[in-house]
Design a binder for these strands. Structure first.
Length: 848
RNA sequence: GCCGGUGUGGCGGAAUGGUAGACGCAGCGGAUUCAAAAUCCGCCGAUGGCAACAUCGUGAGAGUUCGAAUCUCUCCACCGGCACCA
């Protein structure tokens, strides 16, 4: 072949890899293992450029480690349960199962041409009974170990469709289909006891050395450990069987600024009052309006209801405070009751101003005693402040000191107790939906809630379901619900809730070590392949998915499914930025947003109808918003090597990248240029030339820099070095021997990025075997050091010139050389420098 | 609202306390060609200057330092997460 043709070579080399079986992971003692995993995709049906970027990053790592002599495990699967399949069934009448498996087939067909070094023999889909049956076994073991329980929790309830809505389906407090005002309603649900591990999940963050610090910080904040004071306000007149209100506060030091006692609308006292008082019941109903997200609760207008009940201040029995029901107090956190200190909490202040409640300052800044008006004074807890008549005798002290002093004071006086609490809540896993893993329990009138027997697993989803009415089809299935109680054998009903899809993705990394096993994992395989050495995925999973996986690793260790060393399953984490793209939307007759694919839009109008589209710039690519870019056309036009190189070349991998089509053409030209340069070199005579040594040095330097780039996810930097090295090689007048050495190194270094053309050029250079498994080139340290160094010279921090000096010239001689330099003499203009700063090997700065 | 992040030429970005703009794209000029494509060579932050060079310049403002894109504080804009999107 005389010129580069992607279409001819890519299929050829993919077949060669397949035949050689070089990506099939096998356990063996002779090599170290390396497990690289990218977060598995949801089978939307089309791969998008974000997938291409994510999986190419993982592939570069996997291929580099393969060349470095590791046994590499690089698997792929499908996060295949979830709402979009049901939505598709509702929209077009098909079945979620058919839709999902068709999407998997389509996406796999689009992924194969990318040439990723995946071990497809380990492919799994979470909707395969082979997978979810083992997940049910895992669930039963966790139930047995006391890690699962049932309790009430609130959901978004659509009162028109009579169905539970996902947060995503609540838009501005209304149901997405019915448009009805959404209510918060309690339901009995299954929970994982993740809070048993709050302390452990928090402290173990310190062991995650190769995780981004921002992710560790987000997880720590999410777990939210706090120390505070728990104590009671005695009621002046007991009511509804309550004689006190127990509160928890992280700022007990502000107790003298208490304005009222607030209880959550879901507090037992509020419920008890509502049973007697229509006004309270009405207020509770008002508080129940809207969605369940923390954001909705935080942003909602502050509402309060004065119960008329009074409580006594613990430090002064004559001081009575009113008890209010307030919508911003969460039943899930602390005791569901607080005391409000408006002077030092903005929410409390807003509330007190609205309902005309007193505002009492308890401390001031050391130099400023302006009373609080409409902005609460909330300095960092590490700042010293001046206290007003503090009951524990403080004058000037930090918030932290005051909190500790107050807790000690309350404990020794016997009216309060220092308590550590966590923000983290237990993980509710019940979903009132069809397309998920059935929860393998049975409800029996005689025996209560009974786990399904393991021999009856998997509890398979029935195929004969319809989606023509809202709600969970399992709930109204004529026969699937009916079963025999595993305990007493009498007729019973199956649980119709299925599992949160986060459960599916919380252990797939472990399943990949033995994907076909008839137990969740196999000890020898888990022992050999765990942990994941490098995990790669989107920053949007920084908290939930990763925290749930960390919990599952612990639960699986307790239930005997993972070894102790896998307690933290991901040794290193890399969070790639998202690929963003403009969203194109129009509105239907009812004013609801309709999204359009980029290829349907031209010059701001829909190609089909000429309708003007609204452009929302730079949003996260998402299948529901349809702002996805199709990589298939890039591969068809330029080939996989171009697509692979291009997605990694322009932007640092952790950063978001706005996708634009320009540049693929240029990448393709560059690959063709490398092809020509290397092909010419392959035809050169064996000989020496001028600059052999320079080229050799440049080669070793590039090997060093590119290897470092690959080790540290500096893919764009590594590619920039490869561009530079290609230019150096092209301009060099070195002889055939040196050039062939340099060309072979170039081809090898490009191989993780552009494996197909690299294989072609490797064989063109007359090398034996596959470049994919050729040993990675090593840089000779002796070739990396230069004898001289160029030092920039600054005068008062501004660059005025530069000198070239021997690498290890002593400071005094550098100073002499600098002062003798013409540019320096000109810049000094006769002035004598006050100070000369010489940073060896870096810079010289003269201060005048 | 709360938590986390990002901000540098026309564009993607490099430099993580030491020469701001590596490398790439776009653009401009030249060579080659009957012509074009491809290819090759060169220029390319702004302002002033024939030039040498000077001044300004990393979202805005302040600070620390011999020296700041980089560290600190305040503010602005955008992005991610907020427990039932995956």
């Amino acid at each position: 072949m005389s010129q580069y043709s992607a279409s001819e070579i890519e299929a050829k080399w993919q077949a060669a890899w397949e035949t050689a079986g070089i990506f099939r992971a096998k356990r063996s003692a002779d090599k170290p293992k390396y497990y690289v995993l990218e977060m598995f995709p949801y089978p939307s049906g089309r791969i998008h450029i974000g997938h291409v970027r994510n999986y190419t990053m993982g592939d570069v790592v996997a291929r580099y480690k393969l060349a470095k002599g590791f046994n590499v495990l690089h698997p792929m699967g499908w996060d295949a349960f979830g709402m979009p399949a049901e939505n598709a069934a509702m929209a077009s009448g098909g079945h979620p199962k058919d839709w999902t498996y068709q999407n998997i087939a389509d996406m796999k067909a689009q992924m194969k041409p990318m040439g990723w070094s995946l071990d497809w023999s380990r492919e799994l889909a979470t909707c395969d009974p082979e997978y979810y049956g083992q997940q049910q076994a895992l669930f039963l073991d966790m139930l047995d170990a006391g890690l699962v329980y049932r309790k009430n929790a609130v959901v978004n309830w659509d009162p028109v469709d009579m169905t539970v809505l996902a947060n995503e389906q609540v838009i501005d407090g209304k149901g997405w289909r019915s448009g009805a005002d959404v209510e918060r309603r309690e339901l009995t649900q299954w929970f994982f006891k993740i809070t048993d591990f709050s302390e452990e999940l928090l402290t173990a963050i310190d062991t995650l050395d190769d995780w981004p610090s921002k992710v560790k910080l987000m997880q720590a904040n999410w777990i939210g450990k706090s120390r505070g004071l728990q104590f009671s306000f005695d009621m002046v007149e007991p009511a509804e069987g309550f004689d006190k209100v127990e509160v928890y506060t992280t700022r007990p030091d502000t107790l003298m600024g208490a304005s009222f006692v607030g209880i959550s609308a879901d507090h037992p006292l509020a419920k008890a009052l509502a049973a007697k008082s229509p006004e309270v019941a009405e207020f509770r109903a008002l508080c129940a309006k809207g969605g369940t997200t923390e954001e909705a609760l935080e942003k909602a207008e502050k509402l309060g209801f004065d119960t008329g009940l009074r409580v006594r201040h613990p430090l002064n029995p004559d001081w009575e405070l009113p008890v209010w029901i307030a919508n911003f107090i969460l039943m899930d956190y602390g005791t569901g009751a607080i005391f409000a200190c408006p002077a030092h909490d903005q929410r409390d202040l807003d509330f007190c101003r609205k309902y005309d409640l007193p505002v009492v300052d308890t401390f001031f800044a050391t130099e400023d005693d302006t009373p609080v008006a409409n902005t609460a004074f909330v300095p960092p807890k590490t700042d010293k402040v001046r206290w007003v008549n503090h009951f524990a005798g403080l004058d000037v002290a930090t918030g932290d000191e005051a909190i500790n002093a107050t807790i000690d004071f309350a404990e020794s006086a016997g009216w309060g107790k220092g308590v550590t609490k966590f923000r983290l809540r237990d993980w509710g896993l019940s979903r009132q939906r069809y397309w998920g893993c059935p929860i393998p329990v049975v409800h029996c009138d005689e025996c209560g809630v009974v786990p399904e027997a393991k021999k009856n697993l998997p509890v398979q989803l029935p195929d004969d379901v319809s989606f023509d009415v809202p709600g969970n089809p399992l709930d109204r299935h004529p026969t699937w619900r009916d079963c025999a109680c595993p305990s007493c054998g009498k007729p019973a009903k199956r649980e119709t809730d299925t599992m949160d899809t986060f459960v599916d993705s919380s252990w797939y990394f472990a399943r990949f070590t033995a994907p076909r096993a008839t137990t969740p994992t196999v000890a020898e395989d888990a022992e050999y392949w765990m942990n994941v050495d490098q995990y790669i995925g989107g920053i949007e999973h920084a908290i939930l998915h990763l925290l749930y996986s960390r919990f599952f690793a612990r639960a699986m260790q307790i239930t005997g499914h993972l070894p102790k060393k896998a307690i933290e399953p991901f040794n290193a984490l890399f969070t790639q930025g998202m690929v963003t793209h403009a969203i194109y939307q129009t509105h239907d007759a009812d004013g609801r947003a309709v999204y359009h694919f980029p290829e349907e839009v031209e010059d701001g109008v829909l190609k089909a109808t000429g309708e003007t589209v609204e452009v929302i710039p730079s949003a996260k690519m998402s299948k529901s918003k349809r702002n996805v870019v199709d990589p298939v056309s890039i591969i068809a036009s330029y080939g996989a090597d171009t697509a692979r190189w291009f997605v990694l070349s322009d932007s640092p991998p952790e950063r978001d990248v706005e996708w634009t089509a320009s540049g693929a053409e240029a990448t393709s030209r560059h690959i063709a240029r490398v092809y020509r340069i290397v092909a010419d070199i392959a035809a050169m005579e064996n000989a020496t030339g001028t600059g052999d040594d320079d080229l050799l040095r440049a080669t070793h330097k590039t090997i060093d820099e590119v290897s470092k780039g690959l080790e540290s996810f500096g893919f764009n930097a590594a590619i920039a070095k490869l561009y530079g090295f290609t230019n150096t090689l092209h301009k060099s007048s070195a002889g055939g021997d040196a050039k062939r050495f340099a060309a072979a190194a170039l081809v090898q270094m490009m191989a993780p990025f552009t494996p197909h053309v690299s294989e072609e050029l490797w064989s063109l250079l007359g090398k034996d075997g596959l470049v994919s498994i050729a040993a990675w080139p090593e840089a000779d340290p002796a070739m990396l050091v230069d004898d001289t160094v160029t030092l920039p010279i600054q005068v008062n921090g501004k660059r005025r010139g530069e000198i070239v000096v021997p690498k290890d010239m002593p400071k005094e001689e550098v100073e002499k050389a600098v002062l003798a330099d013409q540019a320096v003499i000109r810049a000094l203009d006769g002035a004598a420098p006050k100070k000369i700063i010489v940073v060896p090997g870096r810079i010289v700065n003269l201060v005048i």
